[in-house]
């Protein structure tokens, strides 16, 4: 399984309990549609795209997304979440080839 880079960013960087913050998740993924031809071999490049993403905060699913091949390569997803105490935000994503990856960050509200 290929190692893929991914990143979770919370904006603003410093936040309080109860605050609603922006959550960005991005991953280096080619998002192949299966309809693109390789320039050299002229063969179709097999489809391979992120097809599901789940945001879980302290065991509770905040958002889950079904994603299709029309989303751009190296995709970025932004949504909001309400800070409710310390804990982990875990983003799990799968792609159409069956790869599953997980990325977490610590949520630490100040005050």
């Amino acid at each position: 399984m290929e190692e893929r880079k991914s990143l979770i960013k919370i904006k603003p960087k410093s936040y309080k309990d109860g605050e609603i913050v922006k959550v960005n998740f991005m991953v280096m993924h080619p998002m192949e549609t299966g309809m693109r031809k390789d320039k050299k071999t002229k063969e179709l490049v097999p489809a391979n795209y992120v097809n599901s993403i789940k945001f879980v905060y302290n065991g509770k699913t905040i958002t889950n997304m079904t994603v299709w091949e029309s989303v751009s390569a190296n995709p970025v997803f932004t949504t909001y979440m309400k800070i409710e105490g310390q804990g982990d935000l875990t983003v799990t994503y799968t792609d159409s080839t069956g790869e599953v990856h997980e990325q977490s960050i610590k949520i630490k509200p100040k005050g």
Partner: peptide, 14 residues
């Protein structure tokens, strides 16, 4: 605005 979520942020981390 897209600069805020630049995929190259992952490049910087690497």
């Amino acid at each position: 605005e897209m600069l805020d979520n630049n995929p190259a942020d992952m490049t910087v981390a690497s």
